[in-house]
Nucleic acid binder design. Structure first.
Lengths: 156, 156
DNA sequence: CGCTGGACGTTATAACATTACGTAGCCGAG
DNA sequence: CTCGGCTACGTAATGTTATAACGTCCAGCG
């Protein structure tokens, strides 16, 4: 009871919408962070660090590290998420993530789209297990691979 | 109803114990597969493909691909599991895995040990979500990072 | 035999991620 | 102000993880 309530804090951002910028979720991002987040927001699916880099060459980015550093900060703050099974990144499902507490990702093998979901029951099951076992969780990864509704419907 | 009951088939092996060999879970493994599985079984924690390779140089393995090919087969059959968040592999929790239907992994950041767990409730929650959303799952990844009971108890 | 399919071995290369080092700006303590 | 600590940045080099593209060997089978 005394401790952390949930596994993932994520997305605790005071979301400003700021005239004059393109993608602003938080107003204290550095230039590189904004560029990277913008690239993710623009994309229709997950991007690898190197894909992000390629898209930002024209904006002055030159080295992987610039991207990785930005991604570290963004994921720390829950503005972006890493998909472990893909070695790729998505931007957080905007306003929704901090309301629902993003928890898992459903990745379509067919169209590449990623859906973020939150089933509170899952979180509870995990909490129950961790209490029973004594394991103290810190972060978690839940990723489903399969076919999204559209693709499953369209092409078997 | 009509289709697959569960997300992960895994570990449906007719487990022989075979005199004269060291680690035999299934009797139709190739030499490389046996070597790789043996390395995983011997280890106290997860191993990367390259760590496996290093441990098997004396047995004649020379190239990453030999290890990756063996790992592919082993994971297909559920004899080994890939930890996505670690880019590493563990051998399946022996006899238990096919009884309980291994589902998730708790990875201790402190001692590196990995615990395989199965909370049926989690599986059900995921199934419920996928039904509601129309997503058709194929494989899933559930990984917790944190501290195991021993490490959490010992050193805060 | 001749075909097919699976595992194998080898070399090269692609893709992902970090280390190491130096610079520049911000800010609070002295 | 100026020094020290902190954070972000830029660049080059390197480390780690994974696959592509070849050709070979061998067992099963018509």
């Amino acid at each position: 009871m005394g401790g952390k309530e949930d596994f993932q804090a994520g997305c605790m951002i005071d979301t400003h919408t700021h005239e004059g910028h393109d993608h602003v979720w938080a107003d204290d991002l550095t230039r590189n962070q904004e560029l990277v987040l913008g690239a993710l927001a623009h994309a229709t699916g997950p991007l690898s660090a190197y894909e992000i880099l390629d898209r930002l060459r024209d904006d002055g980015l030159r080295a992987p590290l610039q991207v990785y550093r930005a991604l570290d900060k963004l994921t720390e703050r829950g503005l972006a998420h890493r998909l472990e099974s893909l070695n790729a990144f998505v931007c957080c499902a905007d306003a929704d993530c901090h309301r629902t507490g993003g928890i898992g990702f459903a990745i379509c093998e067919s169209c590449g789209r990623v859906e973020e979901f939150a089933e509170p029951a899952i979180r509870q099951s995990l909490r129950r297990w961790s209490k029973a076992s004594g394991f103290v969780p810190d972060r978690m990864t839940i990723e489903l691979r399969g076919r999204c509704a559209d693709c499953a419907g369209a092409a078997g």
